[in-house]
């Protein structure tokens, strides 16, 4: 069992929690390749996907994860629901609670929304991305992908590159990889580098080269176009010139370094098409790991008898 009732982030997860989720996910991966992708593990359990932000891969991934384990999954998106009619998150939570659900998967634009929800429902809460705070299942699937390829998560140099300031993926990965014994370096435009990030355990590289040099894992983050409109960097062109990962930059990492991206990728901006489709890219494997990780998290949180 996990040490936490909910999965709100990796900040408070233990190394044992992470290991248990990764091990469980690894054992579930085989189900995805079966002809009949169905095990009865979560039969009779209900999972609600509460998505306040548009998402394709995370929502689909959670939905499939629930279905493969025979849970009843319901999608609740903010458009066309009572949310559009002005219902507060607190009231929505109370309503869902009365319907007898077992777990809520929440994606929300407000940092802390998952934690807020957990204070108002008895069901287990899984954070599928809250604002610019955390996205724990993304970090877990990144770690699973890396562990499969590298055999370990200990002693690796992990470079996380780009918009660290607004990245929930970066925060969860810094906590996750650091807890598992890797050293995380972050680099990106200084306008997109959060203050005192080193206190979370990451090293702030002086520049891209220092982060990339000899790294085992290269993780590029998605750059949001609206950041440019706010003047945080001058143009996509300049971003890709100084912070985009191309063949030359990737060659600074170890020759067997893995290239990750949480997707969706702006081809030619964060990552050149050439390396995205190249041999070091594990971007597609990440998607498969995602389903397995979400199966594991659902199983570990609601798989037992109801509390």
């Amino acid at each position: 069992m996990l040490s936490q009732k909910h999965l709100l982030g990796l900040e408070n997860a233990t190394q044992q929690d992470i290991e248990q989720i990764l091990d469980t996910a690894e054992s579930f991966k085989e189900i995805i390749d079966r002809d009949v992708k169905k095990v009865p593990t979560l039969r009779g359990k209900t999972v609600v996907n509460l998505f306040y932000e548009p998402s394709t891969r995370t929502r689909t991934s959670f939905e499939l994860a629930g279905k493969y384990l025979s849970a009843d999954t319901i999608n609740f998106s903010s458009s066309g629901s009572s949310v559009q009619k002005g219902e507060s998150l607190k009231d929505t939570a109370k309503t869902l609670e009365m319907m007898g659900i077992d777990a809520v998967v929440i994606r929300h634009s407000s940092s802390g929304a998952a934690e807020f929800l957990s204070r108002h429902v008895n069901a287990r809460v899984i954070n599928a991305g809250d604002g610019t705070h955390e996205h724990p299942t993304q970090a877990l699937l990144d770690m699973l992908t890396v562990r499969e390829k590298k055999g370990t998560l200990s002693g690796l140099k992990v470079a996380i590159l780009g918009d660290i300031l607004h990245s929930r993926v970066a925060r969860s990965n810094i906590f996750g990889f650091t807890k598992m014994g890797s050293q995380v370096y972050v680099a990106g435009p200084w306008t997109l580098m959060p203050r005192e990030i080193e206190k979370m355990g990451a090293k702030v590289a002086k520049n891209m080269d220092e982060a990339l040099e000899g790294s085992d894992v290269v993780m590029a983050l998605r750059i949001q176009l609206e950041r440019q409109k706010k003047g945080l960097f001058p143009s996509q062109r300049e971003y890709s010139m100084f912070f985009g990962i191309d063949k030359k930059r990737l060659s600074m990492a170890k020759s067997d370094a893995l290239l990750l991206h949480p997707g969706p990728v702006n081809r030619g901006v964060e990552i050149s098409s050439e390396i995205m489709d190249g041999s070091q890219s594990v971007i597609n494997e990440q998607v498969k790991s995602g389903v397995a990780i979400r199966m594991a998290v659902l199983y570990l949180l609601i798989g037992g008898a109801r509390q």
């Binding site: 900040e11 940092s111 802390g112 604002g131 610019t132 705070h133 959060p194 203050r195």
Partner: peptide
Amino acid sequence: NEGRVSTLLGLQG
């Protein structure tokens, strides 16, 4: 406040 807490919580500082 911009600093450790804003970074940790992902809140604008």
